[in-house]
Design a protein around this nucleic acid. Structure first.
Lengths: 153, 153
DNA sequence: GTGTTATAGTTTCAATTGAAACCAGTTGCA
DNA sequence: TGCAACTGGTTTCAATTGAAACTATAACAC
C-alpha cells in the first residue's frame, strides 16, 4: 500500500515510439528517398518537376484528357494540375485545346517536344525503379507487389 | 527497304509509363495516404505538425539530445528541426538548455506537458499503424518488414 | 596567444504549396 | 426563356519549405 506501488520504469510507462520501426515513418523515408533519387535525374537537366512529369506520363497513355481527368489519374489536386499544365503548355511540351461540346473543358495531349522528352525520361525512371528492385530477390519482389496491392485496396 | 519498314504502334514506340504499376509512384501515394491519416488525428486537435511530432518522439526516447542529433535521428534537415523546436519550446512542450562544455549546443528534452502530450499521441499513432497492418496477414507482415529492411539498407 | 577553419543553430528571402475565392460555361428546372 | 446550382479551371493570399547567408562558439594550426 505504499504510495509508489505503481512505480515502473519511465521508459515502460511512457512507451516511446521507435521511429525506425514505425511503419508510416519508414515508408515516408523510403518513398522520399526513392522519389528524390529519380527526380534528381531529370529535375535539373530538363527543368521538369515531379508533378509535371506525372502529368506528362498520364497524357502519354491517355491522350485528350481534361485537366480534371488528369487530376483523377495522378491523384493530384486540381490546383497542382492547373499549375503543372500552365508550365508544360508554356514550355511547349503539352498542347491544350478546347472541348468541342463543353467550352470549360480542355483537351490535353503531348506535343512532339513533349513526346521527345517523355521518351528520354521514361527509360530513366524505369531504370531507377529497376535499381531499387534489384535489392530484392524475385520472391521478395512478388511479395512486395502483393502487399502494396492489399495496402492500397 | 520502304521508308516505313520500322513502323510500329505508337504505344509500343513510346512505351508510356504506367504510373499505377510504377513502384516509386505507388510508394509515394501509399506513404502520403498513411501519414496523412495519422496526422489528421493529432494535427488539428493538438496543433502539432508531423515534424514536431517526430522531434517529440525522438526526445521521448533519447533525452538530452542536441538539435543536430535530433536532425540525424529524424532524417530531417536542421532548419526544419530548428523551426519545430522553436514552436515546441514556445508551446512549453520541450525544454531547451545549454550544453555544459559547448555553449553552441542545446540540450533538449520533453517537459511534463510534452510527456503528457506524447502519452496521448503515441498510442494513437500505434493504433493507426495497427489499422494499416490489419490489412495484411501475418506472413505478409513479416515479408513487409524484411523487404523494407532490405530496401532501406 | 592569434588567425583560420569548422560546427551548432537561427534568420532571411524566394520558391512551393494549399485553401478559398473566383470566373466562365453548363445543367436542371420552373 | 431565366435563374439557381454545379462543374472545369485559374487566381489570390497566406502558410510552408529550402537554400544560402549569418551569428556565436569551438577546434586546430602555428
Amino acid at each position: 500500500m505504499s504510495t509508489d506501488r505503481k512505480r515502473i520504469p519511465a521508459s515502460a510507462e511512457h512507451a516511446p515510439l521507435e521511429l525506425e520501426h514505425f511503419l508510416p515513418y519508414r515508408l515516408s523515408i523510403l518513398s522520399n528517398a526513392i522519389s528524390q533519387s529519380i527526380a534528381d535525374d531529370y529535375q535539373r537537366r530538363y527543368d521538369l518537376s515531379v508533378t509535371e512529369w506525372r502529368v506528362m506520363a498520364v497524357l502519354a497513355r491517355f491522350d485528350g484528357l481534361s485537366a480534371r481527368e488528369v487530376a483523377e489519374r495522378t491523384l493530384m489536386d486540381k490546383v497542382a494540375v492547373s499549375r503543372a499544365l500552365a508550365r508544360l503548355v508554356e514550355a511547349g511540351r503539352v498542347t491544350r485545346g478546347i472541348h468541342a461540346g463543353d467550352k470549360r473543358r480542355s483537351v490535353l495531349g503531348l506535343s512532339d517536344a513533349g513526346w521527345a522528352l517523355h521518351d528520354e525520361v521514361a527509360p530513366m525512371a524505369r531504370a531507377r525503379e529497376r535499381e531499387v528492385l534489384a535489392k530484392l530477390d524475385g520472391e521478395e519482389q512478388r511479395w512486395l507487389t502483393r502487399i502494396l496491392d492489399r495496402l492500397m485496396a
